[in-house]
Computed example of a mutant assay.
Amino acid sequence: MTRTGFQKVLLLRSPDQRKTDTWTELFRAVSEVCPEVIEDLKARVFPLYRRLNWAGLGGADYDNLEGWAEAIRSDLLHTDCDGAILELYDKLMAWGKRWWLHHREAYEQAFWAFRAWEHAPEPEDDWPLLGRGDFFRVLNAAFRLEVSEWNPHLESESEFRLRVEAEYREALERYISFVRQRAEAEGLREEARRPNLGEHMVWLVLRQCKGWGYAQIRDFLDLEAGRSAVRDAQEALARELGLALRPTPRGRPKE
C-alpha cells in the first residue's frame, strides 16, 4: 500500500543507472516468483554458451561480454559468424520471446549471468545480480571538518560550541555543493526514490512470464491493491523497460 505523509526522497542518478537498476529488479522478481525462467535459460541456452570456444570465434569481436553485447545490438551475428554462435543466438532469442522478455537488455543481462555461471562449479538457482561498473566516479573527497582547538582561557565553552556548529554548517554546504556539481556534470539528475518498485515488478513478472491475470495475482500475493492499480503499475513498468506487455487472459475476470 502507498504510504502518505512522508517527504519525497530524491536521489541523484544517471539514466543508465536507472535502466540497469530497473532491469536488475526485474530479474530479482523473476528469481523470486518465476524461477522457471532462469531454469529454462540454464537448461536450453547456457550449455551452448559453455561449449563454445570463445577465443577461436572471431577474436576480440566475440571473446568477451562487451563484444557479444555489441554484436547483439548490431545484428552482426547473422552475417559474421559460424553456425555454433548462430544457434546460441537463436536459442537466446527464443528464450526471451517464450517468456515475454524479448529485449536487448534482457539478453545482455543473460550474458552477465552466463559469465558468472561459467566460473561456478554448480550455478546457483538465484539470478546473479551483477552490477556493471560505477556510474559515478569515486571523488576521493570524503567530508571532513577541521576546527582549531578550543582554548578555554580565551573562549568559553558556549562560544566554542557556536563556532564549531557554524563552521560545520558552512563546510557541509560547501561539500554538498561540490559533490552535486560533479554529479550533475556527469549526467546525474534528481529523481524520486521508488519504494514500491520491487512489489510492482513482481506484479509485472507474474503477468509477463506466467501469463496471470489480476485474480490469480491477487490470490497468490493476498493483495489489497485493486485491479486498476495493478494494471497501471504493470503498464508503466513495461513502457519503461521497453517490453511488449503480455495480454491478460480472456474471459470475465473473477472477483
Rank of each mutant, 00 (worst) to 15 (best):
E240T: 15
R218N: 06
E235M: 13
T248V: 10
E199Y: 02
D63S: 10
E105V: 13
P15M: 06
L77S: 08
G213Y: 00
G213Q: 04
L241M: 15
Y89C: 10
E118R: 14
A236V: 06
H102W: 07
D134A: 14
Y89G: 07
R3C: 10
A71Q: 11
G56T: 03
V138F: 09
Q234P: 01
G213W: 04
W127R: 08
D75P: 02
E165A: 13
V37P: 03
L57G: 02
E224P: 03
R3D: 06
L101I: 04
W112F: 12
R18Y: 02
R169T: 08
V45Y: 11
P128H: 05
V33H: 11
L65T: 08
R132N: 12
D40S: 15
L52E: 02
H119W: 04
R218K: 13
P121L: 08
F160I: 00
A60Y: 00
L237K: 09
V202I: 13
E224W: 08
Q7K: 15
V33G: 03
W54D: 06
R182W: 04
L11G: 03
L241F: 10
D16M: 07
E170T: 14
H119N: 05
R246G: 04
L76S: 15
G187R: 12
L188P: 01
R246A: 08
R246D: 05
A142G: 06
D222P: 02
H119Q: 14
A71W: 03
G133H: 00
V37I: 09
A229S: 15
H103Y: 09
T20K: 09
D40T: 13
G226D: 15
E173Q: 14
D126A: 15
E165Y: 08
D90Q: 15
W127I: 07
A215H: 08
A233K: 11
K91T: 04
T2Q: 11
I217N: 00
R18M: 06
E190W: 13
R163T: 02
A229N: 02
D222W: 04
P35E: 12
L26A: 03
L154H: 09
P128Q: 06
Q181G: 12
W117F: 12
A29H: 09
